[in-house]
Simulated assay, not measured.
Amino acid sequence: MFDTAARRLLDPPLSGLAGLLDRPGVTPNGLTLLGLATGLASAATAAGRLWWWALALWVFSRLMDGLDGPLARRRRAAARGGEEGPRPEAGGFLDITADFVVYGATVIGVAVGATAQYEVGWLPFLGVLFAYYINGAAFLAFSSIAERTGRQRDDGRSLSFLGGLAEGTETVAVHALWLLVPVHSGTIATVWAGVVGISAAQRIVAGFRDLS
């Protein structure tokens, strides 16, 4: 829901940071992998109930995820004399795959830690994972079919994204929120599962209409 506004707000500072990182040895795929590693570390520290460490690692992980795209665009523009070339499919594939791994792992990590420390039930987190599964299936299927039929939505990202109530901005915020207040993580997960479920329904309807 807030991705478009967030991108307008964050693109200038992220592009500036990407310029500072544009040095030999620093690659967009390297930033993606660093985001993946620190995201998994966040999940592990959450499982170990080291909540502040988990939060710091989560924020750093998502920062790396936000920087790989601007750095990639900067490199492509420089390589083509200022004209941005085709989107790097391999990098986009790596990025979205890493996001799926990190999101799923952090849900499990919070569930393990909160269940052990606060006796929070597993069911809300299973609901979140199920809703993520439906969302992922909907937008990946849409992206693939839309690309093949020439009906893709091009907003500069590697895949055609269907908007919804819950997007990347909201996901980052909610994952940070239950690391801030893990005692309430079960309630947060219950509400979030409902919101993501509504988004899944929105994407299914929108994707079907677009492809009809």
Rank of each mutant, 00 (worst) to 15 (best):
I204F: 09
G150S: 05
G156D: 02
V120F: 03
G121Y: 03
V195M: 00
Y132H: 12
G121L: 09
V195Q: 01
G168I: 01
R157N: 06
N135I: 01
Q152Y: 07
A193R: 05
E119H: 13
W178F: 06
A173L: 15
A146N: 12
H184W: 14
T171Q: 07
R151E: 15
E119A: 14
W178N: 03
V181W: 15
P124D: 13
V128M: 07
L140G: 14
P182L: 06
V205K: 00
V181D: 04
V181T: 05
A131F: 04
V128N: 05
G194N: 09
G168K: 06
F130I: 08
S199I: 01
L162R: 00
V120A: 14
F125Y: 10
R148A: 10
E170L: 07
P182G: 09
T149Q: 15
A189V: 11
F142D: 10
V205P: 09
I145F: 14
G121H: 11
W122M: 01
T169Q: 06
V128D: 11
T149H: 12
V172F: 13
A173P: 08
A138R: 03
W192K: 01
A141K: 13
G121C: 04
A138T: 11
A141F: 13
L180S: 02
F139M: 05
I145E: 13
L140C: 06
R203M: 13
A166P: 07
A141M: 07
A176H: 03
P182T: 11
F130L: 15
V174F: 04
I198C: 01
A173M: 06
L140M: 15
I198A: 10
G156S: 03
G186R: 07
R203F: 05
G136N: 13
R148D: 11
G163E: 14
R153Y: 08
E147W: 07
F139G: 00
G150M: 00
W192E: 03
G164D: 14
S144C: 02
L159V: 08
G164E: 11
D154Y: 02
I198K: 04
V183C: 06
R203K: 13
F125E: 04
S199H: 01
E147F: 03
G127T: 12
G163V: 05
G164K: 11
E167R: 04
Y132M: 08
G136Q: 03
V174I: 08
T171A: 12
G121Q: 07
A200D: 03
A193Y: 03
W122L: 13
F139V: 09
G156P: 02
S144H: 15
L162G: 02
L126S: 10
V205N: 05
I204R: 08
